[in-house]
């Protein structure tokens, strides 16, 4: 008999294909794991509507579980409640910074129009003298910043609420 804690442990080993330092659990895309009569049900949620990594994550989850003889798996995608960066685990935030990606500042622009970009400390030197290069970075979930102090260009895992 498989326990759901065992499944959660295995999911910790499945990484986000676009930010490989994070597991799907750190990222907060796994919402629920339940087991009924040997059948494993996993509920996942996309970070962004068009996130091209969702299909890969689903395949990777199946592959990982199959390697451990868990083969009866049903994965369902739900949209609500919508994913926000609050679903990112503390551990995930720490891992992001270590990896050189600034974790989301818990600040979302109140007014959409005419607001200043979020101040994001440099993940290398912690300086707050940084600037946003572009709101849209290498993947849907990131913006592009540069540090004015150490000149390091870096990704910012942008806040979504």
């Amino acid at each position: 008999m498989v326990e759901s804690t065992y499944i959660w442990d295995l999911l910790e080993e499945v990484s986000d294909p676009e930010v490989p330092v994070l597991s799907v659990v750190d990222l907060g895309v796994v919402r629920e794991v339940s087991i009924q009569d040997e059948q494993v049900y996993i509920t996942i949620t996309p970070t962004y509507s068009g996130c091209p990594a969702m299909k890969t994550m689903e395949d990777d989850i199946r592959k990982k579980l199959a390697e451990h003889q868990v083969k009866k798996v049903i994965i369902e995608t739900v949209l609500s409640p919508a994913w926000t960066t609050d679903w990112l685990s503390e551990n995930g935030r720490y891992k992001l910074k270590e990896y050189g990606i600034a974790p989301p500042e818990n600040e979302v622009d109140k007014s959409v129009l005419f607001s200043e970009p979020t101040r994001v400390p440099c993940p290398k030197c912690d300086s707050t003298n940084t600037r946003m290069i572009s709101q849209f970075g290498s993947t849907a979930c990131k913006a592009h910043y540069q540090c004015n102090s150490c000149k390091e260009p870096y990704d910012y895992f942008k806040c979504l609420k």
Binding site: S49, V78, L79, P81, A82, D109, L113, S115, F136, K161
Partner: peptide, 23 residues
Amino acid sequence: DKQLSAIAEKSLKETRYHLKHSS
């Protein structure tokens, strides 16, 4: 309609960034 409202909730978060960029 629960599904329509879920799609709107999800899409709204992205649309805010789009509007900021285009404006």
